[in-house]
Amino acid sequence: MHRRLLLKGIVALGAMAAWPRLLLAARPDAAFIADNAEDAIKDVFGQAPVHSDQIKLKIPDIAENGAVVPVTVSTDLADVESISIIVANNPTPFVASFDMSPRVLPSVSVRIKMGESSQVMALVKAGGTLYSTSRDVKVTIGGCGG
């Protein structure tokens, strides 16, 4: 089913040069079971990220609910190929990856689970290079407000 959709994509695209990468990409299964961020990044990208100020990671400083943490990653970097999200302290840190064609603006929102307070990292692959930025997100017991 998935494959058929992808093939349909090829037909529609014709000769656009940027496309084969997206179409050939497969779910990085090993990254999703890796128990540390470094292995997951190596598995998916084969390179270590460099820090970029051009990535905006919008996420609450303190989560209202660790099971539902809204996150938006956007970037001014050119030629964005993918956006990925990593929660360092989750049992399996690699949370999600979005492979995008040039037709999609490099900005995506999703909601993620966090088991505990952690550094959250946004990865952007653009023009063949991997970039990242990160923020600390606190997951706390509630109450005592006032």
């Binding site: 999703f32 399996t92 949370v95 999600a96 979005f98 995008m100 064609s101 999703v110 993620i112 689970k113």
Partner: peptide, 10 residues
């Protein structure tokens, strides 16, 4: 766009 997700998407 193709999104790949793991268990930690809400």
């Amino acid at each position: 766009m193709t999104a790949y997700w793991g268990q930690a998407v809400s």
